[in-house]
Design a protein around this nucleic acid. Structure first.
Lengths: 219, 219
DNA sequence: CCTGTTCTGGACCGGATGGTCAAACAGACA
DNA sequence: TGTCTGTTTGACCATCCGGTCCAGAACAGG
């Protein structure tokens, strides 16, 4: 509602590192530590379920000290989310309209699965936000995300129309890639509960999903 | 820690409706109202994010009154979860080993998608629990769920071995069905943000997924 | 009508939680 | 050494939140 110009000079504030990468080395380090700790806590408990104390403890900082680097719990969450979408969309951005269709889509799927494997916390943070109806991300979804999805869906639709891959709804193909890859991060407990300890879910998923998409896209 | 035998006779307590369907009609009604309201709130905000006041308000009851029917917030949550897994697994239970393989799997997928469409709150409640590492459901996952999944995976593996469907990892096939169908409930905001208002995500998903699984399973 | 039981909610309690403040501390540099 | 800027923290506050108490209201059944 109100523009909260809390800058002035008192606390070091988030802000895009546009023209002022901001201050001391110790600030840089502590902000990173905090964001990392917050990612742990938020991704597991959600925004309301997380407490500032938990984050501070995970970051080995006192609560007031933490609030010296970020003005509020909300600010930390926002900082995380604004980075997140970019990271999250990167693999899709790299889908090359000039590449070989089947290989491009498969490669995208692999990249996305790899992200689920190496960044499960980010995946869960994102999932949490979606589950709650994306109260803090809706704008981004309807802007950045939508634009990128439309662009890439266009590419896929063209490939499909040219007969270079099987006929397919490009949007739902993208949804399928998201759903199938993120599932292994977000529902990891469930997957492991079923497969038991002697399996590597991600390795198996990798071959399974390769098969799935090859069969789906084969002309 | 302590066994809280809070029964005795004071508040009407949860309990499976094994041999005592319990008391008055008004109790029946209020318990249902409460569980419905709680499903709204828990599915959107998660356990810690939900407040008893919110639930009470959604149920049009005062907080003390609500706590007259359920001994605690936790008890409400537990009541919801214990019903949930059963509901959730029902479609899979109906997968018939004697049926026609392709039709059975497709039908299962349709049932599951239909559940995402008609019970998105339950889907999100479940997703919330998974995201948090299933603290209150782990036992069920490693018991009931695992058993059922193994049984049905066995059926699918047999079909696969007999050449009645294409060779496929049965566990990951099941995961794929879960991931693809639940995605449309859990990530509905995202799907709608991308498709815009003039689409019916579930109708499109229905045909898309039918194609996907037909191609995947074709020999 | 009375009487016992069930149901309802205003007031309250203790602990958690987000956030503030002022005072102390640390390092850089003159 | 003194001072200035940036960093850290113990103590504190107001609000929220889960849960309890108790005094009634509604509703049997006679």
């Amino acid at each position: 509602m109100d523009q909260r110009n809390k800058d002035s000079a008192d606390p070091p504030f988030p802000g895009t590192e546009s023209d002022a990468p901001r201050r001391t080395r110790i600030q840089q380090k502590n902000r990173e530590t905090i964001l990392d700790a917050a990612l742990d806590v938020f991704s597991q408990h959600g925004f309301r379920g997380a407490t500032v104390d938990q984050i501070a403890q995970a970051a080995n900082l006192s609560k007031p000290n933490l609030l010296y680097y970020f003005p509020s719990k909300e600010a930390i969450h926002v900082a995380l989310l604004s980075t997140l979408l970019d990271t999250w969309l990167e693999p899709l951005r790299r889908l090359d309209p000039e590449g070989e269709p089947r290989a491009e889509i498969l490669a995208y799927m692999h990249r996305k699965l790899e992200m689920s494997r190496t960044m499960p916390r980010e995946s869960r943070l994102f999932a949490n936000e979606m589950l709650q109806g994306a109260p803090r991300m809706k704008a981004m979804l309807e802007g950045e995300l939508r634009d990128l999805a439309q662009e890439k869906a266009g590419v896929i639709a063209r490939w499909s129309a040219e007969g270079r891959i099987a006929a397919i709804d490009p949007y739902h193909l993208i949804f399928a890639i998201w759903a199938l890859t993120q599932h292994y991060a977000d529902f990891e407990v469930q997957v492991r509960a079923i497969l038991g300890p002697d399996h590597d879910p991600f390795a198996e998923a990798d071959t399974f999903l390769a098969t799935l998409f090859e069969r789906l896209l084969a002309r």
